[in-house]
Write a protein that binds this DNA or RNA. Sequence first.
DNA 1: AGGTATTCACATGAAACTATTCTCTGAGTTAGG
DNA 2: TAACTCAGAGAATAGTTTCATGTGAATACCTGT
Length: 400
Amino acid sequence: MLKIGNYFENFLKKDSLFVDKSVLLSSHYPEDIPYREEQIQEIANILAPALRLERTSNLFVYGKTGTGKTLSVRYILLSMRQIAEKNNIPIQTIYLNCKLKRVADTEYRLIAQLIKFLGQEIPPTGLPTDEVYNIFYKLVERKKQLILLVLDEVDQLTKKIGDEMLYNLTRINSELHHSQICLIGISNNLIFAENLDPRVKSSLSEEEIIFPPYNAIQIQDILRKRAAKAFCEGTVEAGLIEKCAAFAAREHGDARRAIDLLRVAGEIAERSGSLTISITHLDEAEHRVESDKIINAATNQPKQFQLVLYTLLLVSSPQKQIFTGEIYELYSTLCKKSNYNVLTQRRVSDILAELDMLGIINANIISKGRYGRTRQISISLEESVVTKLKEILEKSLHLS
DNA sequence: AGGTATTCACATGAAACTATTCTCTGAGTTAGG
DNA sequence: TAACTCAGAGAATAGTTTCATGTGAATACCTGT
């Protein structure tokens, strides 16, 4: 038998640590959401009139990542949809994540998605935007119905294309005769509404609900519940859940991250053939999750981003601080050497800012007084990640 | 010494441009009746 | 005459460039003591 066949044999024979790994995936929707009863009830109160086809207030949901916003809202939508189906109430619920690239991150695409939900295809480009609006109007007006539209991560959308389109959306209702649209915005950014056009702000956030972060004890409880379903009994070593929760609590109570961490720890333990999941596995998982995140983010960027990042990796050591000008010079020589277009400093400055936002580099704007104002850049990645990243970038950029 | 004015080296903003992908339209062409 | 082809106009989008303006504090330059 082939060597690899042996491996598969072993894989089958060995009892897995997992009973049901899907419980720990981010695509998993639990049937109850602990510590969020209050918020769910509140949202339900606000949205309930929709079941009688009365227009409900627009709703805005705030909370940091991993506080259960999306989960709760989708949970409510699901149950409303079920009720509506049972009683033949014409309600449509639409959930859109505005952050998804090439799906709903522009005005055109957002409306195009809505149209798709209503059962019609729209070309990805070529049509004028108001034409797309018209198609949408017609589709909505075709029959009497109420649409609950959830826009997840709206802050990302407005950051990119401004709040004009939100204004358009809120105004749609006044132009519709038979139907109504109710907007539910979800945002990670707590001060998001502050830099919104006042007209939009008042109509969009008629109701606001805030999701506070989970505390360490709550996260422990959530983790325990999930772990009980995901892992075989007795495989989780003592103290693991607590440590995992502590990691997450350090990051403003991000439950998603905690669950992720637990899953990866389990995977690592399984792969190493261990019968239990120990703290060492968790530590390793934390490293892996962290570096995977960075490497993923870096490799998904366009070529020029990678070039800039690569020059940064070449010159920087963890403690050394570098300025924009130096980077730009190195970058342009590198470009010339390897036949890439050299971008302007203006553009490179933006790229650096974006790399900073992605958390790949650390940049602070400092003033060196007489000697100008610039970004002070440093990289806080571990040596192993840096080498790995270098290799990947060299390959993808065809550098020698 | 203390106060203010300069000055550097970029940051930040706005607008406009380029290349690509896609639709729609209407003129020209083809084939069949 | 209906069906087909194909170029050209017009859109959306991502990634840039161009031009213009902003900015924080270390220094240079005064001023009056």
